[in-house]
Design a protein around this nucleic acid. Structure first.
Lengths: 188, 188
DNA sequence: TTTAACAGTCCGTTTGGTCGGTTAGTGTAC
DNA sequence: GTACACTAACCGACCAAACGGACTGTTAAA
């Protein structure tokens, strides 16, 4: 049959399930959740999880990298290719981070969680490369550096605040509109 | 004597030492550090720590509240009382959060750490009140809401990024200057 | 002498990780 | 096409270490 039937054992399917579940559980309950809890939430035993990710460190790293990639995907998806003026990338960044995508919120939370407060030096080289890539993308966007930095970190601050119950949808809407306006001239 | 001599046992001194040490260790190594490690870093045994803070929850709550108070103190200290125009409070906020005070960085990190990703409902009522107080302070500052939100969250994003090695001092300086400029008219 | 700020020890629980066993998938020979 | 062999996905029981917290002892302060 052409329709991929449901098999009881599927390496890739299980791996994905564990990865997605781990990301969700991490963002919901913090970084200290146990492997047993993650495994249970993913519908596997801890032994099964250990088969796919030989250590906790390995799982954390996989979740982290996966989220980092999703960040890029999501931002690219929010770039309006028809815009032929500076700030295109920055606007995509703002739209992605301040949008209502549950998907992206998880990715950003995990990225921040492990980048800022997670296990030290868990994936240093990768983090450094990723940070540089973001810097370069913003630098190539044609906005004055200060303005770009302000907008960028405002978007990140908003994305972080989205995980709390203290940022109202109205505030988010207003802030988002302001950030998009700030990407347009005059910049002075 | 009027000079407070160094006593070998001093409730308040020890409590402060534990509190400050705990905050430092939390920001350095994440929220999962053990009480034993905190106690050792503070120069006390775990038993001694348990005498001052009967449970882990109690210690976390004390650190959290302490940091929240320090945030207010630091921001107030950075307000220029001679400014007689809108944005006074917001500028103080920016100066405090984007300054180079190691002191404040720790406070903000811990606040964010436990507010966003820490133990759920560890001090919910207090958090809610605190969040409302910040909202009201910004609302009373005379800036357009969107502009105020953008600046506020940019400052917070920058403060968060300060804990990482990926924000250069030059970037911080430029971003800080831009945020201060954004508090001034014209606001469009 | 009394109080309380500690130190030191112990225990039940939880955690990350290991290991041997079980069974579903897959290639191969007939 | 089906029987067989082999690989690997997955399970379940287990262990040593670490943890939070309770408890008892010790000693500086009042």
């Amino acid at each position: 049959m052409s329709t991929p039937e449901r098999r009881t054992r599927d390496k890739e399917r299980t791996r994905r399930a564990i990865l997605d579940t781990a990301e969700r559980v991490f963002t919901e309950r913090g970084a200290q959740v146990s492997l047993g809890d993650i495994a249970a939430a993913a519908g596997v035993t801890k032994g099964g999880l250990m088969h796919h990710f030989p250590s906790r460190e390995a799982l954390v790293q996989a979740v982290y990298r996966n989220s980092a990639h999703r960040m890029w995907d999501e931002v690219r998806a929010h770039i309006d290719l028809s815009e032929n003026r500076p700030g295109k990338f920055t606007r995509g960044y703002v739209r992605a981070l301040t949008g209502d995508s549950e998907y992206l919120v998880g990715a950003f939370s995990v990225t921040g969680l492990f980048a800022v407060l997670g296990p030290p030096a868990q994936d240093e080289e990768f983090s450094r490369r990723d940070a540089r890539a973001w810097d370069e993308a913003f630098a190539a966007d044609g906005l004055p550096e200060g303005r770009a930095l302000a907008i960028r970190y405002a978007a990140e601050g908003l994305a972080t605040a989205l995980s709390t119950p203290y940022l109202t949808p109205e505030q988010l809407t207003v802030a988002r509109a302001e950030l998009l306006t700030l990407t347009e001239p005059p910049w002075t």
